[in-house]
């Protein structure tokens, strides 16, 4: 017990030190470091030079309900850091006045590698993603123009924008770029899985984790491709069409019947903490997700070709797979103090 506590204390201090070192004294540019061996990030920080103050401004905006029409709802209302930036216990999320949306709020992990955003991929760039929750009538219900004007009237934000952009004039471009500095830096790359892959000393998969990893590679990894655990594509995973929302997914964006019922392949990093699952949060337990893939697939014209071959897993194998998925949990991400609200005084 003591040992565990010591471990957490030491790793906590180490994580803190890393962050302090990474951001130390940096008025000046901060480098976005892609983990070694990962693909090149899709988001190009050279068009949005990363600075400590830019990141801090983005974080302040992310946590500020002032951005919503009635000052009730912030980005973080539906994206909580402790649950990998998804909305724990909410199948669908609610915005202002408790109005309910139509999809499960996605995790915000490694967004700099995303090729598109939203469950249907309708958004093509991290920077413009934020316009959606800001302006959606059931989320934050603001007008971009009103947000800018509201922020411009506060001394706090004039100061924060000045620190970040050397100019206290607030524009939508600066607002969106600052938010992208924060969200683009939500990088999770320190799970047990990562330590094992990096051959770190004394970190090994258990026999069950190892077996789970083999099963994962055989059955899941085509779509949930390592190291990001998504291939950024859209697939129909054989969920029956819900009778209320009748959400056809990507077809709404492309109008292409071949995209009917397809949704973005989500990353599996921190999946242990990002329940509920699937685009409408219809399943609460990871075990039920595996059940779906083994026994629940509904055949249809657009069913993913990867799922046309039945996935057969014994009871023990399912358990091993589950154990492996938990090695994708990254506590240094979930408990990163830099990602939490660090209130700047008004």
């Amino acid at each position: 017990m003591k040992k565990t506590r010591l471990f957490y204390r030491v790793s906590g201090i180490l994580a803190l030190l890393t962050c302090i070192l990474a951001f130390a004294g940096t008025d000046t540019p901060v480098k976005f470091n892609a983990p070694r061996g990962w693909p090149k990030p899709r988001y190009d920080f050279s068009n949005n030079p990363l600075t400590l103050h830019g990141f801090e401004l983005g974080r302040e905006l992310f946590y500020d309900p002032f951005l919503s029409s009635d000052s009730s709802t912030s980005c973080s209302s539906c994206h909580l850091s402790f649950t990998a930036f998804t909305h724990a216990d909410h199948k669908l999320s609610h915005g202002i006045q408790g109005l309910v949306g139509t999809r499960n709020s996605p995790v915000l992990i490694n967004l700099a590698w995303n090729t598109s955003f939203m469950w249907d991929g309708g958004v093509n760039n991290l920077e413009v993603q934020a316009i959606n929750p800001l302006t959606n009538p059931v989320e934050m219900n603001s007008k971009l123009e009103d947000v800018i004007n509201k922020l411009q009237r506060t001394a706090k934000y004039r100061k924060l924008f000045y620190r970040a952009f050397n100019d206290s004039i607030i524009t939508s471009k600066r607002l969106l770029k600052a938010l992208a500095q924060f969200t683009g830096n939500l990088v999770s790359c320190n799970s047990k899985y990562d330590s094992v892959m990096r051959h770190e000393r004394d970190v090994h998969f258990t026999a069950r984790e190892e077996n789970g990893y083999e099963l994962f590679k055989k059955n899941c990894a085509t779509c949930h491709r390592e190291p990001l655990f998504t291939n950024n594509k859209f697939e129909n995973i054989g969920l029956p069409l819900d009778s209320v929302l009748r959400d056809v997914g990507r077809m709404k964006v492309t109008n292409d019947p071949a995209d009917s019922l397809t949704f973005k392949v989500p990353t599996l990093r921190n999946v242990e903490y990002s329940a509920p699952y699937f685009h409408d949060g219809r399943v609460n337990k990871l075990k039920d997700v595996i059940d779906h893939y083994t026994t629940g697939i509904v055949e249809s014209r657009t069913l993913s070709k990867e799922l046309r071959r039945k996935i057969i897993l014994s009871h023990d194998e399912q358990k091993d797979l589950l154990v492996f998925l938990k090695t994708l949990t990254d506590k240094s991400f979930l408990y990163n103090v830099q990602f939490r609200q660090n209130r700047v005084p008004d």
């Binding site: 760039n125 991290l126 413009v128 316009i131 524009t171 969106l176 992208a180």
Partner: peptide, 12 residues
Amino acid sequence: VSGAMDGALDPI
């Protein structure tokens, strides 16, 4: 596809 723009292209 270039993200947040300003001037005539400002989303506001």
